[in-house]
Amino acid sequence: MHEPANRSVRALPMLSNLMEIGSRVQPFSKESREKAPRIRDAKVVHSVCPYCAVGCGLNVYVKNGKVIDIEGNPDSFINHGTLCPKGSATFQYTVNASRTTQVLYRAPYSDHWEVKSSEWALDQIAQRVKKTRDETFVERLDDGRVINQTQGIASLGGATLDIEENYLIKKLFNAGLGIVSIENQARI
């Protein structure tokens, strides 16, 4: 099967030895000798993949206050360390220059965002909620039945949030404020 050239090499062991000059010893560099995975001394934080609902375990590697690597958790019986492409890309989901990290505000009819502080925004939102709730709250139906609800405010979202967050949303919006339209992706 081998080509003639090779046969000639075999025929001439001397020649083949000659050809090996420079190929036998691997010229390692310093860097190669010292190579080490960057997560060698990193802190491992256990997490769960934020995408689909299979629930793959993640290991988040942290060094100097920065996430340096996110991989599957090999101990998890769900994924045994494996991940799909989205899960494997969780690093880029969290460490991404395109992320919006400032509170943005768009005034009515304005054509631009304004950067605001969280405190300011929270105060404003609370005031909007109070105003709208007070304007739209219905205590009783015409026939006298108590309903204590408002349809003036709605909420959407939860399937990507934590249980604890869902719990507080329902508790505050529903039990506290009387908002009825509290919905999430489960409906979609």
Binding site: L18, M19, E20, I21, G22, S23, P27
Partner: peptide, 11 residues
């Protein structure tokens, strides 16, 4: 000039 390799015509 780090290596001298018969098999590599470039070298």
């Amino acid at each position: 000039l780090r290596v001298f390799k018969f098999k590599s015509p470039m070298s």
